[in-house]
Each structure stands twice: as C-alpha cells, then as structure tokens.
Nucleic acid binder design. Structure first.
Lengths: 240, 240
DNA sequence: CGAAACGTTGAAGTCTCTCAAGAAATGTGG
DNA sequence: CCACATTTCTTGAGAGACTTCAACGTTTCG
C-alpha cells in the first residue's frame, strides 16, 4: 500500500439507476456539489494497492470507507472451516467497507492494481451531520447494496450451477471496464476460484458449466480469462 | 386491511446492537426525540392486517415503509418459475418495504394478525430532509439490513441443510416474542414451507433435518409449531 | 364427520462435491 | 530463449447430499 501525495481526484460514485437523473453525470457517476467534494477532499486520501494486496481484514477495526478510483477489489468473508464466501466485487465508483460494532465484517483484497479513495469513517460521519445531502447519498448507496445482496442470494439459492455461471457472466458484461461490446468479449478480472466462491460452488463446477455453455455455443473461451459471449442467447437462457 | 382511527402509538424501532447505547431504551428500541415522533405521527397511520393477508406485491408502486407494531410479516420474492425466496421475516420494530425505481422489489404478507405503522415514503423522504437525525437512523437501519442479508447468504450457501435448520432455530430463539427461555420452547410463527423457502431448501428436507436434530436430542417436537431446544448444544453444533 | 391443508417418511434420481490426474498457462533461473 | 517448477484450469469418476415424487399420518376447520 502506498499513500499518494497527489491532489485527490474528484470522488466519483457509481450511481446509475439509483439516483434521480439530474444527479447523474454523463458517465453515470453521482454529481456531488463542489462544497461537498471539497470537504471530502479534506478528509480523504488517495492510496494505491498492488494486485493481490490485502486492504483490510475481517475483524480489524473499521477505520475507513473506500471508493475505488481505478482497478477492482474483492470483498470476502472467511468461515471458521476455512471456506470463503465472496460477498461482492467492487469496481470504480462503488464504495465498500461495511463494518459492525466498529470492526470490519469482511476482508478486502485488491483484485488488480488499484487506486482507492480512502475516507476515515469518523470524519465522514461528522461531515454527514451537517451535510444532509451527503447523508442521503450514503443511504441511497446502502440501499443499493442491500438490493444487490438480496439479488445475490436469489441467484445463489434458486439457480442451478449452470444459470449461476451464466448470470455471473451477464452481470460482468454490464461493466464497461471489462466488456468489449463490439467484439462481445469479456475479460475476467478474477480467477476461477473467485468465481466459485462468489457463486457458492466449486472451481470444478464453474469450469464444467463454462464447458457446457461453450458446447451450446453461448460462450467461447478465447483463453481462461477472455470469453466471447452470445449475450442475447445468455439472456434467453436466464429469463426462461 | 383496516386503517385504524386511533391515535398512533409511538413508533418503536428495533435497535439493539446498531445504535449507540444512549439511544436505546430499556426495551431495546430506538429513542426518537419527541419532535420527530410527532412529525412521524403526522404522516403515519396505523393499519391492521389479518393472518395471511397480503400487504403489498412485488412490482407494485412503492408507496409506504412499514414498521410492525405487533405481529410478524413475511417478505419474499417470487421467481419466474414460481418458486419463492423468503428474504426475511420482520418482527415488531423492524422496518421493511424496500423498493427499486419506485416499485417494491418483493412482496409482503402478514404471517400473523398484525398492526403496522405505515409511513408514506415520499413524506418520510421529505421529513428526512430537515431531520438529519432521522435520516441517519434510516442509514443505520439500512446497513443493519445489509449485514443481515449478507449473513443470510453465508448460511444458505455455505452450510449443509442440517446446520441451516439449526441456525434458523437459534436465530428464532433470539426473538423474545416467540421463545420462552424458561421452558426453552420456541413457538414457530411460520410453517415448514416458509422455513424451506427462507433456507433455500425443500419442506421435506426441513422436516428430515428436524428429525435428525431430534434423534440427537438437540430438539424435541412438542407439536409441529412448538419446539423444545437445547440451545447450548445447538450452539456447539453451529460453532464447530 | 369429512375434506383440505400441513407435516412426516420412504425411495429413486439428479446435481454437485471431492478426489485425482492431466493440460495449459505463468513464472524463474540458467 | 529454453527447461523446469508452480500455479491455474480442465476433465473424469465415484460418493454424497438434496430434490422430487409418492404415500401416509395429523391437524384444522367448515
């Protein structure tokens, strides 16, 4: 981890579908007014992590909220028996760092090299006290995460492995950072075991389901991390 | 559904473990200051539902936030194939009514006869604008729900059916409304299929796992809805 | 009392996991 | 740049858990 001493870039918060249209800029990020941006800049810092580097650990004191500026982050929960549930992957603009009773609930790890905006929680809370607008944005953000979490639950409990994998690919293809809509090629930023841990299954099953999707022609493995997708047919599969 | 024309009781919001100790009263509810209570009373109404009655439907316009005053509520999500995932059960003091893009994400149904405090969302949003304290309480509440949802995911994906059922019983036994700690008897308010849909399994499996727990002496079925529990041994099972 | 809903139990079948081995990709040192 | 080690991915086979289908017992309620 390195704290960068450059001026903080504007905090960009991913906002599509959550906020009213007049609060979203053309890139799909939330518009914060200049005063708030400035006040955040006063308390936040920009930090960089290398691929694979640990950001915080489950049970560690909950000090910061993070917002990725570039790169991607994996947040997961370790169980007593050593298994691992990936709670979510975070892309630029998606805040993470949920705690409970002052400690982090999960651990976070850099999936790629990344730059994060890091905001001390206490200072953010204080700032929210006299910036109701920001407070509300936090609420809207938390509810968005709740919806995602509920959706995750639905997919993982009520779909067979094949659909889970297909759904995962579709969700990934929504992230413009990793999907080339011209060639229809998805560049996975995570390995098979991350996918398995996210979907609540095993690496072998993920691999087999990719094989099955490939047999059916819905997917083609260009290499392990690059997948050509037939999105219309994936949608068909998932919606019926 | 019946709208009751009595004076609104104090809104009581379940708060244990989420808010600082000085904001929680002796019964474990959140203390709202009198001004806020009054303003909520101005916009809220008290409504009653009979057991089994429908409260709102998935996809219906998101009009209200509800807080149970008495009774219990089941919130579930219907899938295209007709299956059902129960997202959560709500007991007195636990607000529910999550939406997205102006429509409810799930449907809600009265599990028992119940009284609910019903707050129009628009009015609540407006009230929050000049009551930062209330806004913050909403945020804290949303994060609590997010934690619950993540926990639900962990249990359902990473535990075998036996432990899922055991965990479910333990969680239920935390609700003083349904657990008699003297006799160690849990009164289930939901039927087997609700439990199955909550745990992402089938009624038959729930029944079999109860049988297995009973064989081991961790549970005794007094009747279908009344279970004697050996909590220490249930904890043992779950923590190892 | 009889019908209907709910709960339990049994048996067969399916899906997924685990274990194991081989293939492909990645990295390292000469 | 190549040989080798290591990691990651894929594929196969057997075992185990859960689901589904079916039947039967129990409770509830008109």
């Amino acid at each position: 981890m390195k704290i960068l001493a450059v001026t903080l870039p504007k905090v960009r918060i991913c906002a599509v579908g959550q906020w009213p249209a007049d609060r979203i800029d053309r890139d799909g990020f939330l518009i914060l007014d200049d005063v708030v941006q400035k006040e955040i800049a006063n308390i936040a810092s920009l930090v960089s992590y290398e691929c694979g580097e640990h950001i915080y650990a489950q049970e560690a004191p909950e000090q910061y909220i993070y917002v990725p500026h570039s790169g991607a982050v994996r947040v997961s929960h370790q169980l007593a028996d050593g298994r691992n549930q990936i709670v979510a992957f975070y892309m630029p603009g998606e805040p993470f760092g949920l705690g409970e009773n002052g400690v982090y609930l999960n651990s976070a790890c850099a999936l790629t090299d990344c730059l994060l905006v890091r905001v001390p929680r206490a200072a953010l809370d204080a700032l929210c006290e006299h910036e109701p607008r920001l407070q509300q944005d936090c609420l809207v953000g938390a509810m968005a995460q709740l919806r995602l979490s509920q959706r995750h639950l639905l997919i993982v409990t009520h779909q067979r492995a094949l659909k889970r994998v297909a759904d995962f690919l579709r969700e990934c293809s929504r992230q413009q950072e990793v999907f080339d809509p011209v060639r229809n090629v998805l560049s996975l930023i995570m390995d098979r075991s991350d996918i398995a841990d996210y979907l609540g299954t095993s690496v072998e099953t993920v691999s087999r389901m990719l094989g099955k999707l490939e047999e059916e022609g819905l997917v083609k493995r260009l290499d392990a991390r690059s997948l050509w997708l037939d999105l219309p047919r994936l949608n068909d599969l998932l919606d019926n």
